[in-house]
Simulated assay, not measured.
Amino acid sequence: MTRQHHLRGVLLASVACILWGISGVAASTLFINNPHITPLWLTQVRMISAGIIMLVWAQLAGTKPVTIWQQHHDTLQVICYGLLGLIPVQLCYFEAVKVGNAPIATIIQFLGPFIISIYYLLFKHVKPRRAEAIGMVMAFIGTLLIVTHGHLTSLAISPVVLFWGGLSAIGVATNTLIPRPLLPKYGALTITGWGLLIAGLSLLVLKPLWTVSLKLTLMEIGLIVVIVLLGTVAPFFMFARSLSDILPTTASLLDAFEPLAATIFSVTFLNVQLTGFDLVGGLLIILAVMALSLNVRKMMAHLHRQTE
């Protein structure tokens, strides 16, 4: 791997994470400007549109995305990925953005890797290493600062924000773990495309998006396009492409750009006010996830040896 390829991979992963952060700010802008736009409606539009685009893209690339439906076990797994992985990571995140703000929602969602660590501890009996244990403590302190602002007897943010943010963090874990066996076989475009489409269509059961009467301005339509194309399709492609140039551990470290971008753009364009406790807590969580990411490869190698 040349230095030029490594720099390209770092740039692609960084831009992808920044775009994911911006999509949260775009959603927050929509919720503020148009109270009739709900997280459910926006998630449906985002998932169905992005899913169709990715599947068409996969077909044009010659990967034949429909072949997954010929395997019963793989079909069931991709359905679980859509329902248990993508719905919480996207719908619950938008719910947290609506009732709170993009920076806090993104930071809480950023706790997802620690849920993965807990999963491996409970179900795979892979004990956390020193860096992971330190990271968990840092993340706990950071979350505590954000939630209480130093006053342990009261909450500084709404319990509803914590609820939806917590579910989105769990979604990060399920979104990462469920599709892993399918990716080498079918490719990321096919798996993510079907997962998004299945998730989006299933949400129509709650309330079909065409029954919602909305009057959208050109700016609001533009923001929706930003969320679908620049906040979903483009960063997915960039991040997936970056993995051919850099290690997954390096890419996961660059995930820190997502909460940073959400914070910077929210403060700059939406005039979101963050306290010192929010900033220090967010920084602790970001550093904690970095500490965890440095040990992900060792943890996965250890798990692989156990299953051989």
Rank of each mutant, 00 (worst) to 15 (best):
E95K: 03
L243V: 04
C17Q: 07
K64H: 10
R305I: 10
L287D: 01
W41P: 03
L121T: 05
A50R: 01
I224G: 02
Y93W: 04
G85Y: 12
H302W: 02
T250L: 14
D245E: 08
C80G: 13
Q59I: 06
A26W: 14
P259E: 08
T176N: 13
S49V: 02
G82K: 09
L287N: 03
P181D: 12
V267R: 05
K124L: 14
M47N: 05
G100C: 06
V137K: 02
A240F: 12
A133E: 08
H72D: 07
G85M: 09
L83H: 03
P248C: 12
I246W: 00
L214E: 02
G166S: 06
L230Q: 04
Q59T: 12
V137Q: 09
N295E: 13
L216R: 01
R3L: 00
Q44D: 01
M136T: 00
L284Y: 01
A173S: 14
L60V: 13
G150C: 02
V212N: 09
T148R: 03
W57M: 15
C92D: 01
A96V: 03
A173D: 06
T106P: 09
L201I: 02
A26N: 05
Y186G: 09
G166Q: 08
M219L: 15
A50Q: 01
L203G: 00
P39A: 10
A105L: 09
S213K: 13
L76V: 03
M300L: 13
T63V: 15
A26S: 07
A156C: 04
V225M: 13
N175D: 11
K298C: 02
F163V: 01
V267F: 10
S117C: 12
I116N: 05
F265D: 06
L196Q: 04
L12G: 01
A234H: 03
L60G: 13
A102G: 06
P248R: 07
T217D: 11
C17L: 14
L294N: 01
Y81V: 07
G282C: 14
P35W: 05
G51Y: 15
L274F: 00
L30T: 03
C17N: 14
A27Y: 07
T153E: 15
I118K: 04
I198C: 08
I115W: 11
A102K: 05
N271D: 11
D245A: 11
G281K: 04
L152F: 13
A133P: 03
L11Y: 01
P184F: 12
H5M: 00
L247V: 06
L121Q: 07
A102P: 11
V225L: 12
G187W: 12
F114M: 10
H125N: 13
P179H: 07
F31Y: 11
G165L: 07
F239P: 06
D245I: 02
K98A: 05
M219A: 14
D74K: 09
Y81S: 07
A50M: 04
A58P: 13
L303W: 02
A291T: 00
S266M: 08
E308Y: 11
I87A: 06
F257I: 12
V172I: 11
G195E: 04
V45N: 04
T192A: 15
I87M: 09
G135W: 03
P248Q: 06
W41F: 04
V228G: 04
A301Y: 05
G51T: 08
I264P: 15
A288D: 05
L279W: 09
Q109P: 00
Q90H: 10
I178T: 05
G24S: 08
T275L: 04
